Simulated assay, not measured.
Amino acid sequence: MAQAILVTRLLLLLTWMLLAGRAAGTPGAQAPHWTGAMGQEVLVQRQHSHGSVCLHCCCAVVSGPCTVQGFLGGALSVKCKYKQRYERKPKFWCKKGTGSHCAADIIITSKNHPVVLQDRLSIQDNRAQRKFTVTMEALTEGDAGNYLCGVRTGKTQSNESVNVKVIVSPAPTLRPGPAIPPTTAAPPGTPDPFRYFPVLAGLQVLALLAMSGAVLWVSLRGG
């Protein structure tokens, strides 16, 4: 009796595997295929928007990246942090001059204006998290160089800042992905190989069930 039940279970398992294999081979059962072009586009867009940041520099009050990189025509963001008690102090970003002084192109916040927009530059001071973000857009070769990211700590324009080197590289080029050949429809009159699949599958299932019943009947009589 136990042998008959085992044989029946094996036949049912084979039947299920056969039907599952046929269903996987039918048209439209394949998993969706994605090309790499979109992934490359997203990667390049991310590089254009944020650039790459390596290492960190710091002073007594301010810390920030030592180097940031962007691409021609793109944008980059620089995040600098500062210590407590300097939330209301002006934050600035400028081209470095002599020592810790600004040479030109300064953008600076104020006590009442934590967000400032100026041409292609913007600076946003998040006082709750004690960090400010500088964004440079439409990068040109002239934007490369050394900058100061800092806090103005006194009325006499005394600064606490870190040096940030900006690198502007040529924009990366995208390589076109492999061309996907168009699908051609079958010529008229071509028989569909899957047209009779339900009938054949049903006959196979009936045959297997009949064999299973015969084996079970013989086993019971022999027992």
Results as ranks from 00 to 15, higher is better:
L76G: 03
F197W: 06
V44I: 12
K81P: 00
C149K: 04
C57K: 12
D105H: 15
C57E: 14
G97E: 02
Y82D: 03
P27L: 11
L208S: 15
K81C: 05
C54E: 15
Q129A: 15
Y82L: 02
H101G: 05
Q124F: 09
A138R: 15
G25E: 10
L6P: 00
M136C: 06
T15R: 09
Q129F: 06
E87K: 04
S63T: 06
R221I: 09
H101Y: 12
A29N: 13
E160M: 15
A214V: 12
G154P: 00
L76A: 06
P182S: 06
G39N: 13
G142H: 03
A104N: 13
F194N: 03
V68H: 02
V7I: 06
A24H: 06
L13K: 11
L148S: 05
V62D: 06
D105F: 07
A23T: 14
A104Y: 10
I180S: 09
C57Y: 13
L72K: 08
Y196G: 08
A31Y: 01
E87C: 07
Q45W: 11
K95Y: 00
S110Y: 03
G21H: 02
L121R: 12
K91H: 14
G189V: 01
L216S: 13
H50K: 05
L13R: 11
A20K: 04
F132T: 02
A60K: 09
M136Q: 13
R152K: 08
H48L: 13
P172V: 09
G177Q: 10
G222S: 15
I5V: 08
G70W: 02
R88A: 08
A75Y: 02
R120L: 13
Q129M: 11
S161D: 10
Y196L: 08
L43M: 12
Q157L: 05
E141Y: 07
T183V: 14
G202C: 03
K96L: 06
L18F: 10
S100G: 01
P172I: 09
P198I: 02
K96E: 07
N159F: 07
Q124T: 08
G73E: 05
M211K: 08
V62E: 05
L206A: 15
R22Y: 11
L139Q: 02
M1C: 05
V215Q: 03
G223L: 12
P176T: 09
V215F: 09
P172N: 11
G142E: 02
F132C: 00
K83I: 12
N146F: 13
P182V: 08
E141N: 13
K89Y: 14
M38C: 07
V44P: 01
L43W: 15
D125F: 02
L216K: 10
E137Y: 04
A214G: 13
L206M: 14
S122N: 09
W217S: 15
L209H: 08
M38A: 08
T133E: 09
R221H: 13
S52F: 10
G223K: 11
S122C: 05
E160P: 13
T140M: 10
E160F: 15
L14G: 02
M1L: 15
G51D: 05
V218L: 10
D125W: 00
V205I: 14
N159G: 00
G145H: 00
T140I: 05
A186Q: 07
A214K: 04
E141R: 10
